[in-house]
Every structure is written in C-alpha cells, then in structure tokens.
Amino acid sequence: MSSTAKSGKKSSWLLRLLFLSPVLILFAGFFVYPFFFTLYASFTRWRGIGAMQFIGIGNYVKIFADGTFHLALRNNFIWALSHGFVQIPFAALVAMILLREPKGWRFLRTVYFLPNVISTVALTMVWSSLYNVQFGLINEFLVKILGKQTVHFLGNPDIALSAVIFQTVIYIGYFMIILLSAGMNIPKELYEAAQIDGASVVQQERFITLPMLRGTLLTSITLAMAYGVRHFESTYLMTGGGPAYATTTMGIDLFQKMDALRYSEASTVGVLLILFGTVLIVAIRKIFGKSDPMSDMAQ
C-alpha cells in the first residue's frame, strides 16, 4: 500500500514537471535569458557593436543623475496608478452593468472591445487631431459651446500627460472582458436569493458581485498596472515623449536610448523598469491581497 502511494507521488512529480516544462522552457528562452543578457549589458559600456566592456555601476549612476529619467519614473508611476485605479473601476462598472444584460449588451460588449484591434498608429492620429489646439474637435467644443479658452493639450507640458493618459478610456474593453467572463460564472441563484431578501441592485453589486470578483479585480489591477509601467507605444507616437519630456516614460527613454545606439544605458533603464514594476506590484498585492498570493483567489 505504502509503496503504491510512494510511486504515485513520484509519478505525480514527473507529471508536474511534464506539465510545467513547455512553459518553463519557453519562458527561459524568451524571458530569463534576455533578462540576464540585459542585466549584464547594464553593467557594461556597449553601443551595440563589438564586445561589451564591463564598467560596473557606471550606467546606473549616470541614469540616476539624469533629470529625464526622474521625469520618466514619475510619469510611469502616474501611468500605473491611473491604469490600475481609474481604468479598472470604469471597466468594472461597465462589466457590472453588462452582467445584468441590458438591451443590446452583446453588441455593446463587442463594440467596447473594438479599439483593441485597431492599429495604434491610426488611433493616435485620431487623438492627435481631436486634441489639436486650433482645429481639434475638443477645442471647438470648449470654445463654441462652453465659451472657454482653447487648451493646448499636447503642447502644454502641464496638461500633456493627462491628455495622453485620458486616451486610454477607449481601451476599457480589454479588462472588461476579463471581468465579464469571471462575472458570468457567479451563480445566478445568489442574486435571486438576494432579491427575495429585498436587496437593491446597488446592494447586490456591493455584496455579491464585488466580493465574488475580488480575485479577478486584483488580477486586472495588477495586469493594468504592469501595462502602465511598460507603457510606450501610443505616447511615443503622439508626442515622442515631449513637450520638454513631459510625457516621457521609461519605455520611451529606453527606446530613444536604443535609437541613439546607447544599448547599455537602454538596458539599465530596462532593468530599472522591471525592478520598479515588481516593487509596485508587490506593494499593491500586499495592500489589497492577502500575504499569500495563492490564498486570495481560492474560495
């Protein structure tokens, strides 16, 4: 009896390894190896040609002294927070409404997701024209209808960051579908029972949907913040990180350093970006999740 248990244990170890191995092999190839490559490059002087020269922490010293990097760090922090705590609540609100299956909800669900499949190049052109200080629709609305002054959304360093962050409202569909697919698994009986008990819609959402979606919300917030930390493309296309570096992010900084063939400095920014993201996400999980990352989602 005990021998069969033992062999069962052994085979389950083998099976676990078998199940894990494809992911682990690919992860090693496409994440672990490049990470160590980047980490090593960050301690060298290397312009993308020839051998890397080891120079210790010189790049880190240089980057920490660089004002642009400070701006990028601050902007990334704002990006991550706004992604996690503005975009997700909106996505959750819309998902909760759609879970009640209002008229046309299937159509709405599809349309909300559409911006995610349109090329970023085209979307940033839409926003650049919307924001234009002279010809943009938003300014036309401000001046003609509200009688306000024009706002130079992308040309004023104090406003540009908010403007490029605001354009992410069109992407709420991404997280909405995560929340929707989880919400659909909440047993309908719970709501029926609550209704019989006289709970209002708001109470039902507050005491049934939100607690049931807690794990998924945390997943979504984490994912959204990670996307905020590594954000790069749409801002780069819209502003190139300007004006006066007001919208630069670590991703943009990294890209522009590669563009200037400063690979070792770009790698340093990359390492710092990963470090910063990890710290931020661990902190969020500590605050909102239970200490054991596994138990918070198990029921």
């Binding site: 992860f27 490049p34 590594r230 991703g251 590669m258 990359g270």
Partner: peptide
Amino acid sequence: AGVLIPIIAFMVPY
C-alpha cells in the same frame, strides 16, 4: 512578473 517586460528591450536577444 514577465507581464512587466517591455518587449522592445529584448529585441537584440530575441
């Protein structure tokens, strides 16, 4: 933690 990786940073190793 791989979700944090900006893939452009890994272009050379890829």
